[in-house]
């Protein structure tokens, strides 16, 4: 893993609202093909961190670099053009379009055709859109209106949209929130597979510890705006401070696995 190039490097990020430090001095790195989870209790600063990375919030200080290029303070659409795809906590798609058209819009944008007033969008990158939909298992739904999809399928469609610009980095804000347990596992397996195959770095926040410990290569733990632990799932699980914060969830996780082992 250390052989892979550094994709994202975050240096000494700080952001405060009034007197409250939402994020204080956070630094970390993410390598190509690595799946990194950002966890922490409510109010730990996950969302702030995330929104700084994708350009929705400008930090007070600190820097974000993507493949060596500074993205701090750039607009989300500019960051997307630099190769960052993202999904939202509540899936954001285009409900009045078909599934395929949803992906085609992203492809049109990626192809620099946004101000093309004449061509037919239906024919634009049709196969490419189909390929992306097949990749996330949505090929059969291509002509369905997006507004009629079940939520789990909307999430998979969103992943296809996020992959349309062949991103180097994928930012996923609570990717499995609002999904049924089985759908959660499927979506994360799918994400992990795509990330490994295409060597995409993935950074995700998540509340479901099962998902985190099963899929993350590395885990960052935030508490009250500062990074308190960082390491492999095993290291983080064994960390006393993390246990103290995550008492309930951590114990549950261990207990379940012990049951599973003895059964």
């Amino acid at each position: 893993m250390s052989m892979a190039p550094t994709l994202l490097s975050v240096e000494d990020l700080t952001k405060s609202y009034g007197g409250v430090h939402a994020v204080r001095g956070v630094s970390f790195e993410l390598h190509a093909g690595e799946i990194l989870a950002l966890i922490g209790p409510n109010g730990a600063g996950k969302s702030t961190c995330f929104n700084v990375l994708n350009g929705q919030i400008i930090p007070d200080s600190g820097r974000v670099k993507l493949l060596g290029e500074d993205t701090t303070g750039k607009k989300p659409r500019v960051i997307w053009r630099m190769g960052v795809g993202r999904t939202f906590q509540i899936a954001a798609t285009f409900p009045t379009m078909t599934v395929r058209e949803n992906v085609q819009v992203a492809l049109v944008s990626h192809g620099g055709q946004l101000f093309n007033l004449w061509a037919s969008t239906a024919r634009h990158a049709r196969d490419e859109a189909g390929r992306l939909l097949d990749l996330v298992g949505m090929g059969a739904y291509a002509e369905r209106p997006c507004g009629e999809l079940a939520y789990g399928d909307v999430k998979r469609l969103e992943l296809a949209i996020a992959l349309a610009n062949q991103p180097k980095l994928l930012l996923m804000d609570e990717p499995t929130a609002g999904m049924a347990p089985r759908e959660r596992v499927e979506l994360m397996r799918l994400t992990a597979r795509i990330a490994r195959e295409q060597s995409i770095g993935v950074l995700f926040t998540e509340h479901d510890m099962d998902v985190v410990f099963e899929h993350a290569d590395r885990i960052l733990v935030l508490n009250r705006g500062t990074l308190i632990a960082e390491g492999s799932p095993e290291e983080v699980r064994g960390n006393a401070q993390v246990r103290a914060i995550y008492l309930g969830e951590g114990l549950l996780y261990d207990a379940r696995h012990r049951e599973g082992a003895s059964a």
Binding site: T93, F94, P95, M97, V105, S109, A162
Partner: peptide, 18 residues
């Protein structure tokens, strides 16, 4: 399509570079 995308979801359309 870009125009409809902006109408449908400003958040998503900005996130795909529109």
């Amino acid at each position: 399509f870009a125009l409809r995308a902006t109408r449908d979801s400003p958040l998503r359309s900005e996130a795909v570079g529109i």
